[in-house]
Design a binder for these strands. Structure first.
Length: 825
RNA sequence: GCCGGUGUAGCCGAACUGGUAUAGGCGCGCGCCUCAAAAGCGCGUGGGCGCAAGCCCGUGUGGGUUCGAGUCCCACCACCGGCACCA
């Protein structure tokens, strides 16, 4: 008896069945071909939103596809459960951040199950659980031992709203990445991870990530910002030791007419002291400090500086050049000191013009001349060295190399690299994070907590409100006051917690051994599953999570805990789901709620809608009508699929009739569909896969409408349709699979393989062009000979009409699809 | 300024290595079914000219290579994104 499509009922039934059977659990050690499919674990901020639906739909289709293709698939999900929103919600509502977090985790998990995701829940974990975060502390200690975790006083980004410091990666255009508040600069003593020690490897190994987009690699390269050049030593008249500068253009050394220190440079203090200008320097520094990061980096603002009174000696020609302090030189980049070559650097030129400093051209352009006095635009193009002693006449093509070699031989400098990336600031002045496992003892200073005392657990009794002075943990005095692991004397705990990106920097290993109580993970288990075969997630983590995780992976390799230099060689960045071009949010009123979609149309229709919307990496702007769009597009199609199945159930019983041409044609389409849909899955082209399946269903309806009724063909079509659709719409396919009485679960079936023989076309459409324009199309056998093609083309009435009387000057034949006739030239 | 990406019907989007541009969907139109409507099913749907056969134009713009260009090359334009006083 035919039934109506009732997604609510069937989805509930199979969701429960899969959970009961633990249908998606993966073995500790894969025994066959493994496939580690991972999606960036979510922050449990509340209900599931469309962003989750999109990435889960993509990820799950990939995981299920490979599962059917015979891979042993691991597809885990955990929760990135530490973070500010939990604290803010807790402060607002007077509940513990843990309560809020676990409530949200429960909601998110049940929505993920409702969506039909094939996650192995036996491996799930939450990062706020001490059994997880103790391994953050363990990792911190290992980095500490290797000199990769250290504390220093430095200018750091402070978000006045969130009342915590932020890593550079979390500051976008001078604003807090999270709350968009302009950040302030503060000088604080904070904990850092020495990611700069891995900067070269982080750039070089990008090439190993074959499955990364150009865009993503570019984002990371820009962020790391490696540049090649030379370090050059300048002597100062007043000080004994040399000052080193970094330059990418050592070939312009002879054009250096002054020398500049960053305002914060400690040498500036000394030099101004010697020359009695300390007061001026202090005033200047105060002026610079007043500027926000945004102001200071504005290229529009005129450059300002102060002469220190001191002189430096240019090592290449012995010239005396004045030493200035200027706001355009940054303490954080290079060495905090530069040689200024105004003729060939725009910034130096602007400064030279503002303070009447000399300009000297030392690179003559290949065409034309420059006048030192008149130039308003620095020349940084190619040319020939002039006024540069014995180097005169050297061309840009090898000038840098030759000058650098010479500097090295003279002991005046050396080849060098400089990076834009700074060390990763991991301290946070917040409660809901991993405590940094360090105590401070009066006698022994900074002392790491021994491994056997881990975890350092978060105290429960705390005033969560941030003070703006330090972490809320300061208020937990009983927790703060402890004993020194070295001497047993009184000591105080570090009260800052770790950046939550520490959690996500290695969590993908924890999924491979989630219950280990003696190690973060057993390297043997990790080696068996790593690397991640396919990672999915948003591009917004390009220079945050994705750079930190690559760094930690390399440290783990150095610790012999891992083998793969890159943890995620294949990464798919799904686009954003927006409405009206804006991020969906409750406050904007442009939210399409997955819960509503589940209720009205079911999970399958929702998943298909997301997958059908376009290529996964492309942003998708949800139509203004909202959830109803599903009811116009994928839900009616699923009903059509459902009806096709219901209407043909009884064909099973009918005997085999002799096949007609229409049967063979449809069967051919079935097998062709297997071929193209398989390719579509392989390249994540879900929208075209769905389009192909729609065509197949259309053909099935047309076939029946035209009197086609061969039971074998129809059954083959439906069976194949269900298999090909299963990874994207797991519920309806499972239900119909069972209603047809096919063996087992549809998701345990091997992926269909096309019968090449049956899929092969017997005829094809041959196009005849005359002078590049299509003039006729002729049906030909696929194995048509070139001669036949030529003859058919020349015999064609339509072609003759365009050819005129003459014979074609050229005939190009590309069997079996094309004949191109060229009349003359 | 440097770097990366995108631009195709009314809309979302197809088109692998150059070979019938616009698959599939939405929308729209027509038909079947129906007392009628909805649903469903079927057909049509880039623009222009033409009774028709057919012809011309058409993938952001302008050139080029080629028998043939959405696809390759050059120069632009627009939009999106990253870096940017980085020496």
């Amino acid at each position: 008896m035919a039934q109506a499509y009732d997604p609510a009922a069937i989805e509930r039934r199979w969701m429960e069945d899969w959970a009961r059977r633990k249908a998606w659990s993966a073995p500790e050690f894969p025994t066959g071909d493994k496939y580690y499919a991972l999606t960036m674990f979510p922050y449990p901020s509340g209900d599931m939103h469309m962003g989750h639906v999109e990435v889960f739909s993509i990820h799950d289709a990939i995981a299920r596809f490979h599962r059917m293709r015979g891979k042993q698939v691991l597809s885990p999900l955990g929760f990135d459960a530490f973070g500010l929103p939990a604290e803010n919600a807790a402060i607002r509502r007077g509940i513990h951040p843990r309560t809020w977090t676990y409530d949200n985790i429960a909601k998110l998990r049940s929505s993920a199950e409702r969506l039909g995701c094939s996650f192995d829940w036996d491996r799930t974990f939450e990062t706020c659980d001490p059994s997880f975060y103790r391994w953050n502390q363990w990792l911190f200690l290992r980095l500490y031992e290797r000199g990769l975790a250290y504390r220093k006083k430095a200018p750091v980004n402070w978000c006045p709203k969130d009342k915590t410091v932020l890593a550079n990666e979390q500051v976008v255009a001078g604003r807090c990445e999270r709350c968009d508040t302009p950040v302030e600069r503060r000088y604080l003593t904070q904990w850092f991870f020495r990611i700069t020690a891995y900067a070269d490897r982080l750039v070089d190994d990008l090439e190993l990530n074959k499955g990364w987009s150009e865009r993503l690699k570019m984002l990371q390269r820009n962020w790391i910002g490696r540049s090649y050049g030379a370090e050059v030593e300048f002597m100062l008249e007043d000080v004994d030791r040399p000052v080193t500068v970094f330059t990418t253009r050592p070939d312009t050394l002879w054009g250096a007419t002054f020398f500049v220190l960053a305002p914060e440079h400690e040498l500036a203090t000394r030099l101004c002291e010697i020359h009695g200008r300390s007061a001026e320097l202090e005033a200047f520094r105060a002026e610079v400090a007043r500027l926000t990061e945004v102001d200071r980096t504005s290229t529009e603002r005129p450059k300002k500086g102060l002469f220190t009174g001191a002189y430096a000696i240019n090592p290449v020609n012995g010239e005396r050049i004045p030493v200035w302090v200027a706001d355009y030189v940054l303490m954080e980049y290079g060495t905090g000191a530069i040689m200024a070559v105004p003729a060939h650097d725009q910034r130096d030129l602007e400064f030279a013009r503002a303070y009447n400093l000399p300009v000297r051209v030392v690179i003559r352009p290949d065409d034309g001349e420059f006048d030192d006095a008149a130039m308003t635009r620095a020349y940084d193009g190619p040319g020939t060295m002039v006024s540069s002693g014995s180097f005169d006449g050297t061309h840009t093509s090898d000038s840098v190399q030759r000058v650098t070699a010479w500097l090295e031989s003279e002991g005046k400098g050396r080849a060098a690299k400089s990076f834009r990336i700074r060390d990763w600031l991991i301290s946070r002045q917040r409660y809901w994070g991993t405590p940094i496992p360090i105590v401070y003892c009066d006698d022994h200073g900074e002392v790491p907590v021994p491994d056997d005392e881990l975890p350092v657990t978060l105290p429960d009794v705390v005033d969560f409100r941030p003070t703006g002075e330090g972490s809320p943990l300061v208020t937990a005095q009983e927790w703060v006051n402890t004993t020194c692991p070295k001497c047993g004397g009184p000591a105080r705990r570090e009260t800052d917690t770790m950046d939550t990106f520490v959690d996500s920097s290695w969590y993908f290993h924890r999924f491979l051994d989630p219950r280990n109580e003696t190690m973060p993970f057993d390297p043997a288990k990790s080696r068996a599953w790593m690397p991640v075969d396919q990672y999915t997630g948003g591009i917004e983590h390009a220079v945050m999570h994705l750079i930190y995780a690559r760094f930690v992976q390399k440290v783990l390799v150095d610790m012999d805990m891992a083998d793969d230099p890159e943890p995620f060689p294949n990464l798919l960045n799904q686009g954003q789901v927006t409405m009206g071009g804006k991020r969906m949010s409750k406050s904007r009123g442009n939210l399409v709620s997955p819960a509503e979609a589940f209720e009205l149309y079911g999970a399958d229709a929702l998943r298909l809608y997301m997958l059908f919307s376009g290529p996964p990496e492309q942003d998708f702007d949800w139509p203004p009508e909202g959830v109803g769009a599903i009811g116009r597009v994928t839900y009616p199609w699923l009903e059509r699929v459902w009806r096709l199945c219901e209407d043909n159930r009884d064909v099973v019983a009918v005997g085999v009739a002799p096949p007609e041409p229409a049967d063979a044609a449809l069967l051919r389409e079935v097998h062709r569909t297997i071929q193209v849909v398989t390719e579509d899955y392989e390249r994540f082209s879900f929208n075209t896969a769905i389009a192909r399946l729609m065509e197949l269903v259309n053909s099935a309806y047309r076939y029946r409408g035209g009197g086609g009724a061969h039971p074998h063909v129809m059954l083959e079509l439906i069976r194949t349709l269900l298999l090909l659709l299963a990874p994207m719409a797991p519920y309806i396919t499972e239900e119909q699979w069972h209603r047809f009485g096919f063996e087992g679960s549809v998701h345990d079936q091997p992926w269909p393989v096309a019968d090449e023989e049956l899929a092969a076309e017997r005829t094809t459409t041959m196009v005849v062009q005359v002078d590049g324009k299509v003039r006729d199309v002729i049906e030909v056998p696929v194995d048509v000979s070139e001669d036949t093609m030529r003859r058919l083309a020349l015999d064609s009435e339509r072609v003759r009409a365009h050819l005129g009387d003459g014979e074609p000057a050229r005939v190009i034949v590309k069997p079996p699809k094309l004949v191109s006739l060229v009349r003359s030239r």
